[in-house]
Design a protein around this nucleic acid. Structure first.
Length: 515
RNA sequence: CGGGACGUGGCGCAGUCCGGUAGCGCACUACACUGGGGGUGUAGGGGUCGGAGGUUCGAAUCCUCUCGUCCCGACCA
C-alpha cells in the first residue's frame, strides 16, 4: 500500500533481530571489534551514551551521591568472601594471572612463567566486594552513615552469547553503592534509586518502564531483594533496563562493614547497590527505532537539530552565503531552551552530497533535519523535516517551509513535542500489548503459541511460591520461553487464584519473553 | 558451551561441489551533464579471498587447526 522508499533494507516486521543490527550499523552507532563479545562504540552511539551519563549523573548527584573510582582488578581472595556472589559470577570471569610477556622463540608473545601473579586478579564483573572493603575501612561510627557513592566504569562478564549493546562481554555502566544504618533506611534507598531509574528512563530516554521487584530466582547474587525497571521492546519482548538491590548485611558480614551505634554497640551496615548500563542504548533502539533507522529522543540526542546547507560547488560566494544563513539559524537556536537545556544544533559542513547526508541523519535519528538551499535563502525560509513524522501522504519526505525566524521560534517546542510523542507512542504500544485476562496455564500456552511473533506481556496472579515450588514454576515457564519479569509496585491482586498453583493469589506478576 | 550457517575491496554478494592466479552491485575518486531533493554518463582507484599450517607444478576452491560473526538451545544484565 505504501510507495515509501525506506532508509533501511530490513523492516522490523520481517526480521526484528536483523533490523536491530542494521539500525546499529546504518546509524553508525557501533561496530564489531574483532575481540569476542566486545564492540567499538562510535561517536553517534557514544554521544547518546554521554547524554544518558550526563543526565543520570545529575540525578544521582541530586540524591546525595559522590562519584569515585575503584580498581578494575579485584584480588581473587577479596572476591571469594560472599558465597552466593562468587557462585553467581564465577563462571563468567576474566582472570589476570601474569604481569609480563616474553617471546617464545617463534616470534610469538606468551605470558612469562616467571611473572606469574602470586594471587590472580579478576576483572570486575561488578564492584560490591572491593567497594565493601573500602566501606569497612571508611565507616567507624553512625556519624559516617549513610555512605553514598557511585562510580562510572567498565565491567567484564564473559558472556556465551553476545548482542551489541544488549549483552556484551565488556560494557559501560554506573554502579552505585551505599551503606546505611538499618534495614528500613537501606530498603527505602533501594526504592529511591529505582525511582531515579524510572524517571531517567521515562523522562530522558522516553522509554516507558514498569518498576517492580524481581522474583527470588532472578535476584542478583548476594542480594536480599532485587528490583528492576522493565521496558517492552517493539517485538513484545521485555528488557531489564536497570536494577536496584537491597543487599541486607550479606556484604557487610563478608567485608566487615560495621559501625558503632549511638548506644556504643557494633552493628552491621545494611548496603545497597544499583546500576544501569549501555544496555539502555539497545532499549532506545528497540523502543524508538523504525523502518528508517533510529529515532533519538531529543533529550538524549547529541544533536537535536542538524542543519544541512545544500551546496552546489559551483559558486563559492553563493555557497558561502548559504553556510552563513545556516550558521545564523544555528546561532538563533542555541539561544533557545528546550527540554530544560540549550538547543543542540549543528551545521553539517562535511563534504558529500546533501541528499545523501540527509538520509544519513535520518538513519541516525536526529530529531530535526533542516535543509537550506539557495531558493530557501532567497525566500527567507528553511526546509524542515521531523524525524517523528518523516513521510507525507505522497510517500515523499514531509518537508515544511517556515521562515527562518519562525523555525527558530518553533523548533524548541517541536523538540519537546517529539520527546512527549515518542514516550506516549511507546507507552500506548506497551499498554496495548499487556494481556490480563489469562487465568490458566493452558490459556497461557495457547496465547503464546497463537501469538508467536509479537506476544507482548501477560499479567497474571500468583501465590508467590518459593524454593522448589518456584523452581517448578520457572521450569513450566521456560518451556514456553517465558520468564517472570517483576512484581509491579502498588498492584493488588484481583480475586483470581494463582495461575501456577491454584492457591490464593497474593501478587500480580508480569510474564514475558525477554532479552 | 552444544547444534546449524557463514567469513571474498568500505558494504552486500557471486565464484568453492569439479584447483589454473578474482568478479558483480552499491559506495569511493576524477571529469562532464543535472540542479529542490536518495540524479545520469564516462573514466578510474581499491581485495595476497578471516588467520596459521598442510596437500599440489599450481589453492578463494581440497585437508587440519584456529579466530570471529549470525541463528537456535543452555547460561546470564
Amino acid at each position: 500500500m505504501s510507495n515509501i522508499r525506506h532508509a533501511l533494507t530490513v523492516k522490523r516486521a520481517d526480521d526484528f533481530a536483523a533490523w536491530y543490527q542494521e539500525v546499529i550499523s546504518a546509524a553508525d552507532m557501533a561496530e564489531e571489534s574483532g575481540v569476542r563479545g566486545c564492540m567499538v562504540i562510535k561517536p553517534w552511539g557514544y554521544g547518546i551514551w554521554e547524554r544518558v551519563q550526563y543526565l543520570l549523573d545529575q540525578r544521582i548527584k541530586d540524591t546525595g551521591h559522590d562519584n569515585c573510582y575503584f580498581p578494575i582488578f579485584i584480588p581473587l581472595s577479596n572476591f571469594e568472601r560472599e558465597a552466593e556472589h562468587v557462585e553467581g559470577f564465577a563462571k563468567e570471569m576474566a582472570v589476570v594471572t601474569h604481569h609480563r610477556l616474553i617471546t617464545n622463540g617463534k616470534g610469538r608473545l606468551v605470558p612469562d612463567p616467571e611473572a606469574k601473579l602470586e594471587e590472580p586478579l579478576v576483572v570486575r564483573p561488578t564492584s560490591e566486594t572491593i567497594i565493601g572493603d573500602a566501606m569497612a575501612r571508611w565507616i567507624q561510627s553512625w556519624r559516617d552513615l549513610p555512605l553514598k557513592m557511585n562510580q562510572w566504569a567498565n565491567v567484564v562478564r564473559w558472556e556465551m552469547r553476545t548482542r551489541m549493546f544488549l549483552r556484551t562481554s565488556e560494557f559501560l555502566w554506573q554502579e552505585g553503592h551505599t551503606a546505611h544504618d538499618g534495614e528500613a533506611e537501606a530498603k527505602e534507598h533501594t526504592l529511591r534509586m529505582l525511582e531515579v531509574y524510572r524517571s531517567c528512563a521515562e523522562e530522558d530516554l522516553a522509554m516507558p518502564v514498569i518498576a517492580g521487584e524481581k522474583p527470588e530466582n532472578e535476584r542478583f547474587p548476594g542480594a536480599v531483594e532485587t528490583w528492576s525497571i522493565e521496558a517492552m521492546m517493539q517485538d513484545g519482548k521485555a528488557l531489564q533496563a536497570g536494577t536496584s538491590h537491597y543487599l541486607g548485611t550479606n556484604f557487610s558480614e563478608a567485608a566487615g562493614i560495621k559501625f558503632q551505634n549511638k548506644d556504643g554497640d557494633q552493628e552491621l551496615c545494611h548496603t545497597t547497590s544499583w546500576g544501569v548500563s549501555t544496555r539502555m542504548i539497545g532499549g532506545v533502539i528497540m523502543t524508538h527505532g523504525d523502518d528508517d533507522g533510529l529515532r533519538v529522543p531529543p533529550t538524549i540526542a547529541p544533536w537535536q537539530v542538524v542543519i544541512l546547507p545544500m551546496l552546489r560547488g559551483k559558486d563559492e560566494d553563493a555557497d558561502a552565503a548559504i553556510v552563513d544563513y545556516c550558521d545564523s539559524l544555528k546561532d538563533l537556536l542555541e539561544g533557545a531552551i528546550t527540554c530544560g537545556e540549550k538547543v543542540r544544533a549543528m551545521v553539517d559542513k562535511s563534504h558529500g552530497k546533501a541528499a545523501a547526508k540527509r538520509w544519513n541523519w535520518v538513519r541516525k535519528g536526529a530529531p530535526i533535519v533542516v535543509e537550506v538551499g539557495s531558493r530557501d535563502m532567497d525566500n527567507g525560509v528553511v526546509s524542515l523535516l521531523r524525524r517523528d513524522a518523516l513521510w507525507a501522504e505522497s510517500g515523499k519526505p514531509d518537508f515544511h517551509a517556515p521562515s527562518k525566524a519562525d523555525a527558530a521560534e518553533q523548533i524548541p517546542a517541536i523538540l519537546e513535542e517529539i520527546q512527549t510523542k515518542l514516550f506516549t507512542e511507546a507507552r500506548d504500544r506497551r499498554d496495548a500489548n499487556i494481556t490480563r485476562d489469562i487465568a490458566t496455564m493452558d490459556q497461557l500456552t495457547e496465547f503464546y503459541n497463537d501469538n508467536a511473533q509479537y506476544p507482548g506481556w501477560v499479567e497474571v496472579q500468583w501465590s508467590k511460591p518459593t524454593g522448589p515450588a518456584l523452581e517448578q514454576v520457572v521450569e513450566q515457564l521456560k518451556a514456553l520461553k517465558l520468564t517472570i519479569r517483576n512484581v509491579p509496585m502498588n498492584a493488588e491482586p484481583n480475586d483470581s487464584p494463582c495461575i501456577f498453583t491454584g492457591e490464593v493469589a497474593v501478587e500480580r506478576i508480569y510474564v514475558a519473553r525477554a532479552y
